[in-house]
Every structure is written in C-alpha cells, then in structure tokens.
Amino acid sequence: MDPTSADDPAETPLEAGGHRLWVRLTHWAIAGAAIVLIVSGVTILMAHPRLYWGHAGNDLTQPLLEIPLGPNHHHGSWSKATPFFASGGGPVTANRLVEPWNQNSWARSLHFLAAWIFLAGLIAYLALGTATGHLRRYLWPRRAELSRDNIGRDIKAHLRLPMPDAEPGPPYAILQKLSYVLIALVLLPLMFLTGISMSPAIAADYPFLLDLFGGTQSARTLHFFAFVAITLFLVVHLVMILLTRPLRQLRGMTLGNRR
C-alpha cells in the first residue's frame, strides 16, 4: 500500500483541494517577505561579494570564497599595506583609494523591514503548525515513508512527465514532505539565526550566537548558503506548480477550497 495515501486517517485533508486560512496567510507573508529579502540581500552581498570563516574577514584578509557578482568582484584599489605592529608579518592596514559600488542604504533598511514580516510569519506558522498538529500530521515523514522503495518510487514519479495530477494541499508524498520540512524547520529558522548573529547589538545580548556559528563571518557565510538553498527550493517549487495545473494550485493557496 502507498504509505502516503489519503486513506491513512491521520492524513485525511480537512479542506479538500485547498489550504487552511492560517496556512495561506503565513505562506504569503513569508513568500512575499522572502522575495524582498532575496532582492535586498543580493544587493547587500554585491557591496562586498567575499565570504569568510571565523569572527573577522575583510579585503586585507584571505577570503573563503569570492563570488563573481556585480562591479565589486575583485574590486581593489588600495594603498601599500603597512603593518600595525613593529614585529611585522602580523595584521596590516591599507587605505581604500576608490569607493566601491554600494546600494546598502535602502537595501539594508528594506532587508530588515521585510525581515520583521518574515519573522512574524515564521513564528505564526511554526506556532500554529505545532498547536494544530499540522506539522506532525502533514509534513513530518512517517517511518514507512522513509523506505528506499518509497523514496525511489517518488523520485521516479517526479521524473515522469506529465506530472501526476495532484490536488493542492496535503496529503504530500515523501519528497514534498522532506523539502517542506527542510525549508520550514531548518532553512528558514537558520536564516533568522545567522541573520541576527551579524547584529552587534543582538550578539552583545546573546553571545552564544557567535559561538554557535563560529563567528560573525561564519554566520554570514552560512546565511549565504542558506539563501542559495532557499532560492533553489523556490525555483523547484515554482516549476512543480507550473507542472501541476498552476491556476488551481494558486487558487488553493490563495482562496482555500472555494471552487
């Protein structure tokens, strides 16, 4: 028997062909905020497209990764480096001779404005998802679903075109459950935690944030990779919707089960 079948009483959808009101509201709050966060976040990254590990990293230290993004990639017009200490070989300073491309004035303020909406949506989603049993019932995979056979079958089903015609909303097959669990319980909370780890005011109150990720720059690097993963999820999510009667999916997530 297909373990993801709607015959399982625990997974009987409450609103056939749609989503509950709080799911729709939090989904669109988080989705709208995420788009703004991605646009403003990429703009912020373009000001300094270098990633580091640890507490400190700048143009005069070794980067972990330089991202070929925008006019500041390999930007550099610096005066000769001079050491801070007489012993030499240690930390240096140098003057920046040309100001780089920087749109952080609006991008930072927009990022943090959208972050409030994102945070409110995420807290509401996780609280209601836990309180109503939604997360446990519809997203958390059952042991039988994690069998190699079942996952293999679901992968094959996703590779075949046209995609099977699925009703919007739960119940979900295993790949869909795993990707929703990954995004809602891992990546989005990680985005919040790595984000606030970069705040000097918040890190002063909660210094464990610095130790949790190994430093501000490590948190920034993880923030970037979580962004990449979320963007990939978004692309796959949109492709899946386009392949499974997009207008009906859109109506299910916006108006619920109204026909």
């Binding site: 507490h55 400190a56 700048n58 143009d59 005069l60 230290t61 610096w78 005066s79 480096a81 801070f84 240690g90 930390p91 240096v92 300073t93 140098a94 003057n95 920046r96 100001e99 000097p200 005011a201 918040i202 890190a203 002063a204 109150d205 210094p207 610095l210």
Partner: peptide, 28 residues
Amino acid sequence: QRLLLSRTSLVREYDRAEITSMPAIGTV
C-alpha cells in the same frame, strides 16, 4: 532593540592575539 535588549550588555572583547588586519575606508 531598546525594548527587548539589555541596555548595558557588553559586546565580546577579544584577546590581543586575535587582532586582524583592518582596512581604512571612507575619508582616509
């Protein structure tokens, strides 16, 4: 931040050995 965070908490202070290179930017 003023409502939720302590008004007196201190930022982390590092050891001298952890001093790094530092660019001078803006007006130099």
